[in-house]
Simulated assay, not measured.
Amino acid sequence: MKKQRIFNIIQIGNKEDIVSRAFDIFIAAVIILNVFVMVLQTFSNLSPYFPILDAVALVTIIIFCIEYVLRIWTADLLYPNLSKKKAILKFLVSFDGIVDLFTILPFFFLSGFIAFRILRVVRIFHLFRINGQYDSFAVIFSVLHEKKNQILSSIVIVLILMLASSIGIYYAEHNAQPNVFENAFSGIWWSVSTLLTVGYGDIFPITTAGRIMGICTAFLGVGVVAIPTGIISAGFVEHYSRVKMLTNFARDEHIDMLTVRVSDGHCWSGLRVDELGVPEHFLPAVVMRDGEALIPVNELQIKTGDTVVLAADSYFFHAY
């Protein structure tokens, strides 16, 4: 029971547990303090205060170490379907586990890689998660996950255009600027700054052909940047349209609905639909997985990342 309580406290996003919420706020404050100390240590005029800053950094690292050990100790509760050794191993190679390790080790062994402590900032974003489908961070990650193939395709297009423009500018400018555009890959920096509309301007074409290519590349860059933006925007529209559709359906049909987001380590993960312990008078209405609506047949296995929509006739709530 003590181990379970510690696990509940150190888990992120449980707003109902005051102690757990206080722990989240405390860890966030320690993270910010640790990064702030790292920034102050870059100012040479603060060298007289470096011993104090080192002491503060040591205290924060000790806190990180304690948290890291507790997360390893409770890994079997995070992954209840695995054995203790496999659960610990899965945590160690998980994103949070790797970030935690890389923010602790440099302080003791790799002083030259002290910048790895900045990775602790990443954990701040985890503190804002809410166990619900409509959390802003959950929506963002859900849209990115649903549109990952399209986003990946747009990135491939960017890389192809970047390589093509780099080769093209080489042939257009090499004779005029042999020291600037030495080979096909020397134009990569120019390609990036032009294609992504950064416009740094330290390398630029001087020939007519090169300038025409620069104009074409800049125009293509506007379109290329708009592609992933449009994909993500469309994803948000689809998501909220889906939510609105479900809400209108529930209102028109007089159905009360609950949504359960099955996160990593959730008790429903790995269970079949007929094994779910749903609230009284509620039944699984639909299972959302990777942007698709699945019929919740008894044999369907719930996976991490699924959203289970529970529905019940509002009559039950008026009767009870």
Rank of each mutant, 00 (worst) to 15 (best):
R117W: 13
C216I: 03
A293M: 01
N149W: 13
I9S: 11
Q301R: 13
R129H: 09
V59S: 06
R251S: 10
M257L: 15
N81G: 15
M1I: 05
I98R: 03
I12S: 01
I160A: 14
P284K: 05
L105Q: 07
N131W: 00
Y320W: 00
A184M: 07
I6A: 05
T74N: 12
K147Y: 01
T103N: 12
E253H: 07
N175M: 05
H174A: 11
I9F: 14
H126G: 11
E280P: 08
D256V: 09
S193N: 09
W268K: 02
N179K: 09
T307V: 09
L77Y: 00
R211Q: 15
N298A: 08
V309W: 12
V222R: 14
I88L: 09
E146L: 14
S142E: 10
F204T: 08
V139S: 01
T247D: 11
H174S: 09
V225D: 09
N8K: 15
N248P: 03
D306H: 14
W73Q: 13
V156F: 13
L40S: 02
V192Q: 03
D100T: 06
D100E: 12
L53F: 02
A226C: 08
L283G: 12
V121H: 09
G291Q: 01
Y171P: 03
T229W: 08
N131G: 00
R71D: 15
Q4G: 01
F91L: 12
S111P: 05
I9G: 09
Y320L: 02
P178N: 04
F236N: 05
V198L: 13
W190I: 01
G132R: 03
S94F: 10
L161M: 15
T259F: 04
Y79C: 04
I52Q: 01
L159T: 06
M1W: 06
L152A: 12
G265C: 00
L220H: 04
F141K: 07
V35H: 06
V308C: 02
Q150H: 11
Y240A: 07
I63G: 05
G214K: 12
N14R: 04
I66A: 07
G291W: 04
L161N: 13
D54Q: 04
K148R: 15
F7R: 08
H254N: 12
E280N: 11
I27Y: 13
N298D: 14
E173K: 01
R120T: 10
L276D: 02
N248Y: 06
W268Y: 06
L161W: 14
F91A: 10
I231P: 02
G235K: 03
T208L: 05
L144A: 02
K244D: 06
P48C: 09
R71H: 15
V222Y: 14
V192L: 02
L70P: 10
P284Q: 04
L300P: 05
W73E: 13
R21E: 12
L300F: 10
M288W: 11
G230L: 00
C216N: 02
Q177I: 04
K85Q: 15
I72Q: 07
N298S: 10
T229K: 05
V156M: 08
R129D: 03
V237F: 13
I98V: 00
Y200A: 05
F219L: 00
L53M: 01
V243T: 15
E299C: 15
L271I: 00
I31L: 11
A285G: 11
F107H: 01
I61E: 09
P106N: 07
L310E: 09
G13H: 08
D313G: 07
I72V: 02
F185N: 11
R117A: 11
V297R: 12
